[in-house]
Structure formats: structure tokens, C-alpha cells
Simulated scan of single mutants.
Amino acid sequence: MKVLVTGGAGFIGSQLVDLLLAEGHTPIVLDNFSNGREENVQSGVKIYRKSLLSDKIERIFKKEQPDVVMHLAAQVSVAKSLESPAEDAAVNVLGTVKLLEYCTKYGVKKFIFSSSSAVYGYTSEVIHEDSPTSPISFYGTSKLVSETYIKLFNRLNDLPYTILRYANVYGPRQRSDGEGGVISIFIEQLLRNEAPVIFGDGNQTRDFVFVDDVARANLLAITNADNQIINIGTSTQTSVNLLCTLLSNQLHSSLTPDYKPKRQGDILNSHLSNAKALDNLKWAPNFNLISGLEKTVDFFKINNNFI
């Protein structure tokens, strides 16, 4: 099956491309390389270096005729979305709508969308797919608006979809610069013998899900969970303070965290139920936090010249 992966040179997308290859599919990468890296993509995979907003995207659909589109490319920085909401909306909303139009025009069989737990906003409860959505950042808003367009394209044009709302994804290849995930940032700070920086009091919780499990959820969505929204998380929550302690123990560091003021747009708690993923996507995480952190730490040691 031919699969167009937007953001296919990025952290999650490139590992999804690896999995698609291993399963006998033909992935095609669309990436503007603002965050992606060419070394993430296996040789022989066709790459188109284009922005989602480029008028030349339609040519790719016309030439390649993909069976499935997996849309991972996005403006992912919460802080940047608050600083530049128009840019965030242009990439995340308009970019998605343009893809949906091309999918409809060129007979794509399914659209698989990478959404985010940021659509939910503040909550102290376990989050289910029917929990209220009230995002507190423009990033979360752009993901929620994109979901609405996807559902309407399905209703009006019969374009099948699966929307995957990710918890906090971490693992090898995640960048620690810019809006990198807290785990990759902590690891690099500790490896450089710098105090890990925690924004807020560190009691905020996150549901950390390993990137291999997220890639597998996308693969399963090709043949499961049509026209459904699915949380992709571990059904557990971990405080940022505990996360810092776990990583410090793995790296044999005694550094004390450096606490900074809470950042605008950061949610307090995230704890996603994955019951629907198990029932409808036939997915459950294979990695717990300890095993996932071990693989991530090993990657950063090897690839950042710390050993």
C-alpha cells in the first residue's frame, strides 16, 4: 500500500516510515525539514521537500496516487502558537484542509490524523474521547478545528478517517531544541551536567507514551477504527518531578532541578484513557515508562557523543 506521510522526516514520522517499510508498505515522505532531518529517513524512500502550504503539493497527489495519507506535519510549539496564532492556524488548519481537498480529489482511501491531548485543556479527571474539549492554547485549538474539518469532509465527501489524540510522545530522535519534549530536554541537560529546568512546581502530570507505540497505532489505523477519534496514551500519569528523579537515577546524577515560573498554555494534568484504543484499534502500549526511558537515554548517549 502506498502511504504519504507528512512530517515523515520528523521524530514520530520517520519512525512510522521505518515501520511501514518493515510491514511491506511503500511510504512517501512530505516534509519541509523545519524540524525533520534527512538522516532520519532510510535510503531509497522518496522524499518531497515541500511546505504544506505549497501550491505544488497537488502535483505529488497527482503523481503518486497514495492509498492512505498519514498527516503528522504540524506547527507543534504551544509557545509559538501563542506568539503567532495566525501562522499556527495557517500551517495546522489550512495545511490540513488543503490535504483533505487533495485526498478527496485523488481518491485517497483513508486519512489518518495526528491530533493531541491539547484539545482537552484543563482537567483533573481521566480523559476519555468524549470528555469536554476546551483548549487553552492556539495549538490545541488548531488541532481541534482540524478535527472538525476532517469529520465534515467525511460527512460531505465520504473520506474515511481516524483521528489519533496523542499523549506526551517521547523516544529516540526527539529534538531537545525549540519545543522539544521534556524528556529529551532533561536527558540532554543531565548529560551536560546541567541542572534540569522544571517550569512550575513539578507536580503537573503527563501521560508519557513511547514513540514506537505511537507509530504502531498509526499502522493499525490503516485497517481499524474508521471514522473514530482515539486517545493514544498509557492510561497512567507521571509528575514532572518524578520523571526528573527517574532520569536522574538512570544517569546517576545528583543535580537538583532548577524551578522556573509556570509557562502560559501548559496544562496541569494529562491522563488519557486508552480503553477505546484497545477495543477499536486493537492497540495497547508495549513500553512502560522505565523501559521507554532506557531506550531513549541509550539513544541520546550514542548520538550526542556523551560516551
Rank of each mutant, 00 (worst) to 15 (best):
S253K: 00
T236K: 14
H71V: 08
S176P: 04
M1R: 01
P132K: 10
Y106A: 06
V29H: 03
A89C: 09
T104A: 12
I57V: 14
E294D: 11
P285S: 07
I307M: 04
D67C: 01
L53V: 05
F61V: 12
V76D: 11
L99E: 02
L242T: 13
N218C: 12
D67W: 00
S51A: 06
L21M: 11
Y166W: 13
Q250N: 07
N304T: 12
P257R: 01
G292Y: 08
V240S: 03
F287R: 03
N168W: 12
N193V: 04
P285A: 05
V211I: 12
V214C: 14
I150H: 05
H71T: 09
Y259F: 15
S77H: 07
K56Q: 13
P196Q: 04
E83V: 08
A73K: 02
A284H: 12
L21I: 15
G44K: 03
C103F: 10
T96C: 14
G121P: 14
L251N: 02
Q264M: 13
P261G: 06
K63T: 15
G233R: 02
L30T: 07
P285I: 06
D207Q: 10
Q174L: 01
L272V: 03
T162W: 00
P172D: 13
N269Y: 15
Q228Y: 01
D130M: 03
T296V: 10
K151N: 03
W283R: 05
I229C: 01
L159W: 04
N286V: 03
S77Q: 07
G95I: 01
I163V: 15
L289V: 07
D213V: 06
H252R: 07
D31C: 10
V68F: 14
V91I: 15
T256H: 02
N241V: 04
L53Q: 09
I290A: 13
S239C: 09
G233N: 06
I47P: 07
N157M: 09
L289D: 09
E147M: 05
D207W: 09
D298T: 15
I136E: 12
D88G: 02
E38W: 06
L243F: 06
A79F: 12
F210G: 05
Y259A: 02
E294F: 02
K105A: 13
Q75N: 13
G10W: 13
G8R: 00
F33Y: 14
N40T: 08
E38R: 15
P160D: 12
S34N: 13
F138L: 08
T296I: 11
V45F: 10
K62F: 06
P285L: 05
F153C: 07
V119G: 13
